[in-house]
């Protein structure tokens, strides 16, 4: 693996390999000594042009657990101005001997650009680019889902997600998590339905490999998991995507009543950070079927696996 930019970069075999490696990584994280020497001498740069404390900490922990040297560069608030910044930062990182860059950026395609513009030769791991993708989030969601469903049903781990029914609810339009999840879950054979008000579904969604619905109540009784997306109020910009927060909650919020529409085994997932009371109620977020805290823990294992596959092998020519 040279870069991880999009969930679409992963074949079924590649995705399963990554999830399997993540299982081994997770096992090491249950031990007293969590640190592995695997990436000793490698330098990972966390390049965050956008605030995201939880993703940054997760990648930082993953890299450190593998003994990589970690340099964290939070460009937000620094003197970096747009345009010049990404390229010049890339050149700086190259000069500093970075082996991989974990990039979070507000511009869709920034990771793709860093990987392919010819500015530097480092491996790029997309930690969220604008409203495009966030592949490690989708991987940790799939990891969590696979684990939970396998605990219940058993069977070949490679096939657990085949036919699994997943509802992704909320602001699909602005969600990089939704895009990555649709692509990855499709690759792994799951059946995805997006549920959102029509204003928060992108034009063109009809060509995505999933179904769509505007009716959450009708969807919930038939799913194995419901993934609630954060309502990205900061991206709404007065766009009036829905009349009011109250109406959104009434029609698309996961509350106690809707929780009880789910089958007994169904899981409640959320990529965080949550707007409690808007897209998810406390009752749903804190219920035993919620995997929200588990997702955070699994994030470290999945990111260790991604870093391992990106960096442990021979140097790219």
């Amino acid at each position: 693996m040279r870069h991880l930019l999009s969930a679409a970069d992963l074949s079924r075999e590649g995705a399963l390999e990554l999830l399997d490696v993540a299982e081994e990584m997770a096992a090491t994280q249950a031990r007293e000594i969590k640190k592995l020497p695997t990436l000793r001498g490698r330098t990972v740069v966390n390049l965050f042009f956008e605030d995201s404390t939880r993703t940054r900490i997760s990648f930082e922990a993953a890299a450190k657990r593998l003994s990589a040297d970690v340099i964290t560069f939070s460009a937000k608030g620094s003197s970096v101005s747009k345009g010049e910044s990404l390229k010049d930062t890339a050149l700086t990182l190259q000069a500093m001997g970075a082996d991989a860059v974990v990039l979070r950026h507000s511009a869709s395609g920034a990771a793709h650009r860093l990987a392919h513009a010819g500015w530097s030769g480092v491996g790029v791991l997309n930690a969220g680019d604008g409203t495009h993708e966030h592949p490690t989030q989708a991987l940790l969601d799939a990891f969590t889902l696979r684990r939970r469903l396998a605990e219940r049903a058993g069977g070949d781990p490679a096939r657990v997600l085949e036919g699994a029914r997943v509802a992704v609810v909320g602001d699909v339009l602005h969600s990089r998590v939704a895009r990555s999840n649709v692509l990855l879950l499709e690759t792994l054979g799951a059946d995805v339905v997006l549920v959102a008000p029509p204003t928060l579904l992108p034009v063109g969604v009809g060509t995505w490999p999933c179904r769509t619905s505007w009716d959450l109540d009708a969807v919930l009784p038939d799913v194995d998991a419901v993934m609630v997306l954060r309502v990205q109020r900061e991206r709404m910009g007065g766009g009036g995507f829905f009349p009011s927060a109250q109406e959104y909650t009434r029609r698309f919020g996961l509350d106690g009543r809707r929780l009880r529409l789910l089958p007994d085994h169904a899981l409640v997932m959320h990529p965080g950070p949550m707007n409690r009371g808007l897209e998810i109620s406390a009752e749903a977020a804190d219920s035993p079927r919620s995997t929200i805290v588990e997702q955070v823990a699994n994030g470290v294992a999945v990111r260790m696996a991604a870093l391992y596959l990106l960096l442990a092998g021979e140097d790219a020519a």
Partner: peptide
């Protein structure tokens, strides 16, 4: 994950512990 020759070979799948 403890090998000293990881960088000399293509990336390996992990075995079970």
């Amino acid at each position: 994950m403890h090998r000293d020759d990881l960088r000399r070979n293509p990336v390996r799948a992990l075995g079970r512990t």
